[in-house]
Design a binder for these strands. Structure first.
Length: 155
DNA sequence: GCCAACGTTGGC
DNA sequence: GCCAACGTTGGC
């Protein structure tokens, strides 16, 4: 199984929203690297749910991939803010997955603490920053869950 | 609101 | 294919 980190702005859709909804579709990714990462996801993979543009930013909890990549149909809807005329039904350019709520950490694990942790210094989150869907090593996933006091093991 | 670090676009 | 101009992300 693989591990991922998914960024969402809590103003737009926080982990509490995901908890309320149970699951959600992850549309609107318009970056090729992020899209390619999504296409690697398998049902059951676990994701760190990251709050970006937040105060403070950090990992808020855990989610699970509930459906593998399928065409992002928002790209075909002219009235959607995710509309892209270069994506067609015949040749979809963008993809989305479904994610399911797993757990919220009691306390957000801040980006600052992640940066201060030696074993997490090589995370894409720290090294590259801006990517909204990124791979995470199992060791990194485990360390973050441990630091956040989460119980989120597979399941 | 600023701006660094990327990504994308399009002229050539 | 190069690269300048522009747009976006996201921390601060």
């Amino acid at each position: 199984m693989n591990y991922w980190l998914l960024k969402s702005e809590p103003n737009t859709y926080s982990i509490s929203d995901l908890e309320r909804d149970g699951s959600t579709s992850w549309e609107g990714v318009r970056n090729y690297s992020a899209r390619n990462n999504m296409r690697q996801m398998k049902v059951g993979d676990l994701g760190l749910y990251y709050h970006s543009n937040a105060n403070p930013p950090g990992v808020a909890g855990i989610c699970k991939i509930a459906r593998e990549a399928y065409p992002d149909y928002y790209a075909w809807n002219k009235r959607s803010k995710y509309y892209d005329d270069k994506s067609s039904r015949e040749k979809p350019r963008w993809f989305m997955v479904d994610v399911q709520y797993v757990e919220s950490f009691d306390e957000l694990l801040s980006l600052e603490r992640i940066k201060d942790t030696k074993s997490l210094r090589d995370m894409v989150l720290v090294k590259q920053g801006r990517l909204s869907v990124q791979p995470v090593k199992q060791s990194e996933f485990d360390a973050i869950v441990r630091m956040a006091g989460g119980g989120g093991r597979r399941g």
